[in-house]
Structures are given as C-alpha cells and as structure tokens.
Design a protein around this nucleic acid. Structure first.
Lengths: 219, 219
DNA sequence: TATCCATTGATTGCATCCAATATCAACACA
DNA sequence: TGTGTTGATATTGGATGCAATCAATGGATA
C-alpha cells in the first residue's frame, strides 16, 4: 500500500491527484469552493478533465457536487468522522494481519525507526506525515488491494480532523501513541498477529475517543 | 439503505445507474467491452457523460478503464471475491447493529415475511432479488451512510458470482441459508444485537466457504 | 516459418463552443 | 418595511470536432 505513486498520463487522474493532495495537505479547507474554470486554468487544462476529476473525488467522499451549481470540499460531521473510525477499527486489523504474512524484517526495522523518529519530532506536519507513513508502510505488504483502498479512502476523508486535533492538543504529550506504535512493531517482529491486531484496535479506538473528547475540533 | 433510488437529472449519473443495473442483472458480463460511442448512442447522449459514468463505475470497481484503449466490465478473481467476503464479514455486523437501534417492528415483520417468501420461491432470479432485498432492508434503518455505501459496493462487485454460484448449485437445498435468515429475524425481534451479529457472521462466512468449495464458479 | 517493423483503422482524450440552470440583485407592489 | 418577481450574470452540463494513442494487419527480412 503506497501513497498514490503513479502520476498518471491521463489528465483527469493527474488533476484528481493534485486536488486530492491540496485537500489532504490542508491548502484546500472543507467548505471551500472548487470552480471548474479556475482549476482548469491553474492546471493548464480545459474544464472537461477537471469535471471528471471532481466526480472521482466525489466518489472518494472528498468533494461534494451539486448539479448545475458547483463543487465544494466536503465538510464531514462529527458523527461521520466517528463512523469512519469505527470502520477503521474493524478493517485495519484485518489489513495489518494480511500484510504481516508478507512483511520482511527490513521493513519491520524501518517501521521501528519511524516510530522512534516520530517520538523525537517537533512539528505537527512532520508528525502527521510520519504517522501516516508508519501505518501505511505497516500495511504495504498486504495483497488485498480493495481492502487497502477502502482504508486509504477513510484515512483521506478524516485527514483534516487528524490535523485539526493534532494542532489543538500539540505533540508533546503523545507517549501513549508512541507506546502503541512500539507495541505494534514488537508484535510484528514476533509475528504475533493477534497481538498486533489488538494493539492496533486500541490505537484506533483511542483516537476515536480523543476526538469525542475534543468536539471543538469539529467547530 | 435503499437500492439506488433517485434517477438523477444529471445525465452522467443516470447513465452510470443504467450501466450499473445492466452489470448487476447480468446483461453485461465480466470481460465485456463497453464502447463509449455505442453506449452514448444507446442512451441518446454524447460520449462525455458516458465517459464520466465509466469513471464513476471504475471507482465502484465494476468497470476497468485502460487509457486510450477502452473500458471493460471488471473481471474479479477468486481471491478478490474472497477478500470482499472477508470485509463484509467484519462490516455488515456493524451495520446491522447500527440499523437495529432504529428498526421498527413493522420492518421486522416485513423481514420475516421476506424470509418465508424466499423459502418458497422457485427461480434463481427471484431468490437473488429477495435475498438482496432482505439484507438491505435489515440495514435500512442505519444512520451510517458511508458504511452502508461501502457495503453496497461490495454487494455490487460480487453480485455476478452470487448469481453464478446460485445458478450452479440451485436453490433447492438452501435450508441452512433460510435458517440463518430466520435466526437473524429472531435476534432482531428480541433486540439482541450480539446474537444478530453472530448469526450474520455465520451467514456470510458460510457463503465464503461455499464459494471456495466451488471454484468452477470463477472459471 | 517466425519475428520485427510500419502503416492503417478504430477508439479514446481533450479543447472549444453553445445551452441550461442557479444565484443574486434590483425593483415593483402590498 | 417586508415580500415576491423578474432580469442579468456567473457557472455548470453537454455536443461536436480534432489530436493523440493503441491495436491489428500486412509485408519484409532473417
């Protein structure tokens, strides 16, 4: 499971990737309007591929289209976000399990290094990037493509609130998170799937309850 | 959770629904080619909305697009099908749980009636339709839209093999399936979520192992 | 006879143009 | 003053035409 690697030769897919990246890195905020003509000009294309890209992003849940009216970056409610975390809690352990079957030791070493790097990083954006990288890498050996795709979509659609939460509470008092990561690496190293799954469930469940404790993130 | 209700005024979405229905009812088989111009003419539109519809169906997993070459109805491997059932096994109990919270008694009566109707039906297409109706109705009271959408996609992408399997083994010796349905209705009536979930898990798992026992379905 | 290359035909991708629709402001009227 | 209506403007939806790309066929060569 890799982070949208191939820059497609097809314009509509390339544009979809560019807009998706802007939504994920926060430069396009929820509720912001996306005008076809403006983005077409920005990407040096006509409105047709932009329109197709917007439909793709709509089916990803990142963009909301209203017929004859326009497109906006989707605004996710607190309930929808909780729902995404509930789904992740059931699916990500399965994906981790599938991935563990094929994970090699070198990748586990990299995961270990990432967990420590995260522990000593000092800014929010780096933390978010490393955290995403850690989990996606832990899933990277799974052969279950559609499962990986569902989960990547869930990560994407909740990315905004992960950032908002992290910005709100800071990254100083995150030892529990780091502990979870180390537990996961340890379980993977021992090839103990049940243990890895349960550590991951705890990890995701904790984030869900943390978000529930900080409703101001959704304000 | 209702079966694609609104016939959108937007042509691309209307066309996507029409093509999707043709794939689901079997009149478009896996591997069959979908030519933009041919379908545009058939639906009385130009190629643009057809192309957008195909991209939508691609993100549903029902259609496979190759740049500058064409579109085909997706061909799902045995492994991918098993994967879909694994995901369903983890997610559908959650959706049923969410739905049960809001299910009224009248709907449970309807589910009961559907279970009996299925038991006495004699042709495969009716059986498939009633089965789909039964399960989707049992999920209909859930407020978790994105979960419902994921599951609907999984149903859609495996629909072809449900039909192939049912055609292969017939519907005469399906008592176990009917038993599962009655167990689910009973648990719902008693408002016993855990019991309903475990009956549903058994139900889905059984189908998965049945498919594994009949690999000729995927030939 | 098998393999490689070029040419042709078919099909898709995209840009431009026009039509349809929604939004918003100005205005008439109660 | 508030409300309903109407027109102008901006924006999207879709049709047509052209360019780009791929697949397939035929011929030349080893």
């Amino acid at each position: 499971m890799t982070d949208n690697a191939t820059p497609s030769a097809v314009a509509s897919q390339r544009i979809a990737t560019l807009i998706r990246d802007q939504i994920l890195d926060g430069s396009l905020a929820p509720g912001e309007r996306i005008r076809q003509e403006e983005f077409a000009e920005r990407f040096g294309a006509s409105r047709i591929p932009v329109k197709e890209a917007l439909r793709l992003l709509e089916s990803d849940g990142l963009v909301t289209l209203v017929a004859n009216t326009g497109a906006w970056v989707s605004r996710m409610s607190e309930e929808e976000c909780a729902e995404a975390y509930q789904i992740r809690e059931r699916l990500e352990p399965l994906l981790l399990h599938e991935s563990m079957k094929n994970l090699d030791d070198a990748t586990i070493d990299t995961l270990d290094a990432l967990a420590f790097e995260m522990e000593s990083c000092t800014d929010v954006e780096t933390f978010l990037r490393l955290d995403r990288q850690f989990h996606l890498l832990s899933y990277s050996a799974a052969r279950t493509a559609s499962l990986a795709e569902i989960i990547q979509r869930l990560w994407n659609s909740t990315q905004h609130y992960r950032r908002a939460y992290t910005l709100l509470v800071g990254i100083e008092h995150n030892q529990i998170t780091h502990n979870h990561h180390h537990l996961i690496v340890d379980a993977l190293r021992r090839r103990d799937a049940d243990d890895a799954e349960s550590a991951l469930v705890s990890h995701i469940r904790r984030t869900r309850s943390e978000l529930a404790r900080h409703p101001e993130v959704f304000g």
